[in-house]
Amino acid sequence: MMETEKVISAKELTKRFGAFTAVDKITFDVQKGEIFGFIGANGAGKTTAMRMLCGLSLPTSGLATVAGFDVYKQNEQIKKHIGYMSQKFSLYEDLTIRENIRFYAGIYGLDEEQIKEKTAKLLRQLRMEGQDKTLVRALPLGWKQKLAFSIAIVHDPAIVFLDEPTGGVDPITRREFWSLIYEASARGITIFVTTHYMDEAEYCNRVSIMVDGRIDALDTPANLMKQYAATSMDGVFLQLARKAVRTGD
């Protein structure tokens, strides 16, 4: 891993809503090509932190750069250099696979030639050749998620944010999904992923655990398990999250 290239860098990043501090001085760096797990209980502040990093919400204080751009001033630039996928929304169900790819590629300003090339490559990679005229609605959930991920990185972003990407799919499809993630990471795309499921956290290179708006732990899964004398990330998380005083989001 190239130590020098920081794709995300946050320093004492804070977001307050009135008297409530949703994100409390979080400091962390994410390296290029890293798979970074962002974990926390409901209401720990994950979503708020992620929104700030995506340029959707202005921080109250602190510093952060994403893909080299400042979150205060260059949020339009940030949006061009990131990809985003969430389990809840990602694809248009009433458009075909090809139309979805075209649409998203078009949004990010790819030209006709690039779109054609990307579409062919993507369909080949997902083994969906010849199905490009299928409506997304008709696809099984696992395929949708793989397609959504591939589309989220169609413009070769510096970072892709994944918000609970693999809920509810069968274990084999889930692994196929994770191999797509590994592949993207090997290509140098940084992966920033949130999840409720701790076995998924174990796939990450490093994991940060948020409790009450702060980052209480940040290390590789192996080191965290060692540090908290746990046999799984579940054990680590339970020890940390049980200290939480906040009760909800």
């Binding site: 209980a41 339970l238 999250a241």
Partner: peptide, 10 residues
Amino acid sequence: TTGVDAVSRK
């Protein structure tokens, strides 16, 4: 337990 964090699930 879908969509609920690990502590609440436990």
